[in-house]
Design a protein around this nucleic acid. Sequence first.
DNA 1: TCTGGGGTCCTAGGACCC
DNA 2: TCTGGGGTCCTAGGACCC
Length: 414
Amino acid sequence: MSRITLCVDMDAFFASVEQKTKPYLKGKPIAVIGSAMHHMVHGSAKRTVITTASYEARAYGVKTGMNIYEGKKVCPQLILVIGDNEKYAYTCMELERIYLTFTPDVEVYSIDEAFLDITASYHLFGSPETVGMAIKKAVKDRFGITCTIGIGPNKLIAKLASDIQKPDGLKWIKPEDVRDTIEDLPIKELWGIGQKISAILGTMGIKTCGELGRIPLSVLRNRFGIIGIRLKAMGLGLDDSPVTREPEDAKSIGHSMTLPKDIWDRREIDAYLLRLSEMVGRRARKNGFIGKVISLVIRYPDFETFSKQKTLKDFTNDTHVIYLSAMDIINSIRLRDKIRLLGVSLSTLTRDPLQLSLFKESRRRKSLLQTMDRINDRYGDFTLTWGSYKIQEDNSGVISPAWRPSGVRCVNVK
DNA sequence: TCTGGGGTCCTAGGACCC
DNA sequence: TCTGGGGTCCTAGGACCC
C-alpha cells in the first residue's frame, strides 16, 4: 500500500527567474539578495545575505546565507541582484496551477518546493516518471526555468531523490531501492537532521543512515525523546507524514528587521516597533486573525538574540495594542547594548469572529482600522499611519521573502 | 567586511488549580 | 510526622526548514 510521492524543487529559483526575465544575466554568476529597501545604504545593499546563487556563482563557492562581502570574495565578478518577491510569489502560484493538473493533492511546501501525492493519479499519465517529465516540461515551457523532481514512497525519500539529482534532474527511488540508497548516506543529508542532531549522533558513532536505522529505538528515545522515534524511522527511510494542502490556520504572524544601523535611541526604537506592529496587525486583520500573545525579539550587535513575550487578557489585532505591548516588554528589559534587530510577533492565533463589538468605543476603533487598511491597500504601505511614526532614511515598505505565495503566509501585504 | 526573514514544533521549569 | 499527583497555562529557548 505504498504511496507515490513527488517532490518538485526549483533549481536556484530566484536566480533562475532573474536570469530568465533579465537576459543579460544569463550565464553569469549572480546572487539574489534581500529585497527590503532598508538594506540600501548609499545606493548599495548592506546587512543582507545571499538568498540564492545561480549555478554559475555556485561554481565559485557562492552559497546561500553568505553576506555580500563573502560572496564577492570568492567570486569578484559576482553580480548582485535585489530580489523581487512578488515576481517569485506569482511564479509560485502559477507553478501550483501546473501541479494541480496532475493531482489535487499538492502541498506547496515553500516558495520553491512542492510535494505531490500522485498515488491515485499517475495511471492517467502513464508512470510516475512520465508525470515527472511532463511537469518538468510544463515548467520549462511556461517559465523557461528548470526544476528537479524526486519520486519516492514518501516525502522524506522524494525530497532526498530531488536533492541527489539536482539540478535539472529526475529520480525515482522505488521502495525496494530505498535501503541501498540510504545505507551509506550521511545522516546530515536527510530532511530534518540538522547541524545539532547530526553532531550528537556523530558523537554516538552514527554517521550514516544505515547506522541510524540499526540503532535500537530505546537508545534514540532516551537520548532524543520524541524526536528519537522520528530519527529511527528516518534511518529506515520511513516517513508517514501526509501531503497536505496549506493549512487555513496560521499559528503566528511576525515581522522582524535588521536595522540599517545599530541603535540605542528610544525614540528610534519605538518608531521601528510601531512600524513592525503595524505590519503584524495589518497582516492579521487582512487574514482575519486575532492573537493573544505578543513577542518581542531583540538582537544585539554581538548577535546574541533573545525574545520576551507577554500574554494579553484579550485577543487582538489592533496595531496600537500590539505596539503598546511591545513597548511594555522593551521597558521591562535592561538593554545592555545597541540593538541590531527588532522583531514583533503575534501568536496563539484564532479566527476573528468578525462581529462588531457591543462597545461603541471598540466599534469605532475597528472601523478606523478598516479605513486605514483600505487606504494603505490602495496607496501602499504606510501611506497613512499613526502620529509618532516617522523614520528617516528608511521609509520604504519592507518586503521580506514570502515563503508561501498565498494566504496568511503571503508577506507581501497588498 | 561581517552574518535576512518567515515560520513550525518541542522542551522544561514554574505558577496555579483541584 | 513532611510532602500526592493530576492538569493547564505561561515563558524562554532551541531545534529544524526554506
